[in-house]
Design a protein around this nucleic acid. Sequence first.
DNA 1: TTATTAATTGTCGTTTTGACAATTAATAAT
DNA 2: ATTATTAATTGTCAAAACGACAATTAATAA
Lengths: 232, 232
Amino acid sequence: MIEYSGQPHYLVAVDCIVFGFDGEHLKILLVKRGLEPEINKWSLMGGFVGANESPDDAANRVLKKMTGLEGVYLEQMQIYGEPDRDPIERTLSVGYFALIDIHKYEAQLNDDYEAEWFLINDRPKLIFDHNQMVADARKKLRYKAALHPILFEMLPKKFTIPQLHILFEEVNDTKIDTRNFSRKITSTGLLIKLAEKDRTGSKKGAFYFKLDKKKYHANSQAFLNLMPNLKV
Amino acid sequence: MIEYSGQPHYLVAVDCIVFGFDGEHLKILLVKRGLEPEINKWSLMGGFVGANESPDDAANRVLKKMTGLEGVYLEQMQIYGEPDRDPIERTLSVGYFALIDIHKYEAQLNDDYEAEWFLINDRPKLIFDHNQMVADARKKLRYKAALHPILFEMLPKKFTIPQLHILFEEVNDTKIDTRNFSRKITSTGLLIKLAEKDRTGSKKGAFYFKLDKKKYHANSQAFLNLMPNLKV
DNA sequence: TTATTAATTGTCGTTTTGACAATTAATAAT
DNA sequence: ATTATTAATTGTCAAAACGACAATTAATAA
């Protein structure tokens, strides 16, 4: 078998920034690292890219293994490849961010891994360049969510406008006028109003909505303007 | 020295999709591949990531070596990592797209490499998954250029509104109303009108403009709406 | 029956958009 | 010299979107 002579070979890994929303705050899922160095320190979910899988495959495998979830929203972010980012040997890592419904996860929690949700603004220091990865992921999430309707991925199938509103405020770290927000979000045509109400949050109760999946998928690249005074 | 035992190692490369604009059409810079397999076939500019450089470093190095240009606009696109994408041995490649002023390049042309500009819509078939990379890069360029003022990178320091207009039409493969276009582009506040006119294209001549670099760099993440009926 | 609270619907002046027309500055033709 | 021609530039206007803000509604608690 021919080879490209003399070129160095490296390890290639994936790391996933997993975002979730508990109804009040944006959260991130971290695990205790299971191998040396930095064993038992908090880190992102990650793993090496196997011989017969693409990085995308690897990210899905890792997520499945550590959360039990399949088919979650996963998006490639960027590659992290500074020569010295891993002290043991050169490893390039492909960063992904994932959006999951935190409640779905809780049901399938796999206790083999010490995984834990942290408030995005109150999380432990992470190993290597994982802190930078989280910062980048947050920025990218904000960017993407301002233009594309992806935050639904973090909500249950039935959700209310007020829930969605809080989520947008959390992601963008800003206050949004409820009246203008609901006008914009409903004018996307992606929401279907249900008869049922959520009565847990208020006396009046808020109507549940669900996603119009047909429109959503047919139009997943839909380009909206979901944030006022959009600046990135 | 400790190692992560038993994990497979791979080659890591970079490939650059270099876009240019000749005043009429969007072009792409291709080179004849210099090594087996597929030697002498058209491919993207690429190279392996060296032991002491990041992928970003490698992309800049490759561009410098093959075009003589430094400091060009370069943006990481995504990683290409299907297990069988390279027939010789497993190689993951980080795709970049670059925007350069085609005239600047011509001056510095390095004849050691058989590089050639092709019309984006009339280019030869490329090796491996490079055709997919070009398609992805085009899409990403369109996306980015609709929101951020990056197309200036493909124009000379002095340029006219009609030139810019043609470039936008080329990138988006659509007709844009000249009147609305010039209103939008001037309202960004990024353009400084010069006294001089370009008289090569018409009797009346078109005023030159230059970029307000202060505003441009202070605001490189500026979020505009440069395309009508924006859909991606 | 009334006070309270949060959800929902509504108002309105300003700005932006997109479709379209008129004017201007130059050269070429008569 | 005057006029036709061409492309650049400036202008018009109605519709839509935006953002700041207020009023109404549906429920429970007092």
